[in-house]
């Protein structure tokens, strides 16, 4: 399962970013192992339309799960239509910690 986590920086030591569309980075990690990878969100500071474009990035990477703080009204239906499960993380921990919590089944599914 490929997991995407919104993050303030390009590595799992960085804190989770609360906002989905304006997240500076999207981090990816497979639950089956392997390295972390990251994609910088070039639309993080765009005036509008950030939600759907962020969703497109996550979809193109083939993520099955998305961990973020909050997701907007335009991105949400896209992520749902792509069949990606959303888990909410609203603590101030790092992306690595959020991933661990997900693996342990401690995160709440967003619906």
């Amino acid at each position: 399962m490929l997991v995407c986590i919104t993050s303030k920086g390009p590595t799992p030591e960085n804190p989770v970013e609360e906002r989905f569309g304006r997240s500076p980075y999207f981090l990816f990690k497979d639950t089956e192992g392997g390295d972390w990878s990251s994609v910088a969100n070039k639309f993080a500071d765009a005036a509008g339309g950030v939600g759907p474009r962020a969703a497109q990035t996550v979809i193109d990477k083939g993520a099955h799960v998305l961990i973020t703080g909050n997701i907007g009204g335009n991105a949400l239906p896209v992520i749902q239509a792509a069949g990606i499960e959303i888990y909410q993380y609203r603590d101030s921990g790092t992306a690595g910690e959020a991933f661990q919590k997900y693996v342990e089944g401690q995160l709440k599914k967003f619906s």
């Binding site: 639309f43 765009a46 509008g48 339309g49 950030v50 939600g51 759907p52 474009r53 969703a55 497109q56 979809i59 193109d60 335009n74 239906p77 896209v78 239509a81 792509a82």
Partner: peptide, 26 residues
């Protein structure tokens, strides 16, 4: 193929594997 979604500067088009999602108001 995703070319339209890639081109759109306003995030109005998202291309999924099996369908296109279009946001007219964007």
């Amino acid at each position: 193929c995703g070319k339209c979604g890639e081109f759109c500067q306003y995030g109005a088009i998202v291309v999924l594997k099996d369908r296109i999602m279009f946001f007219p108001e964007m």
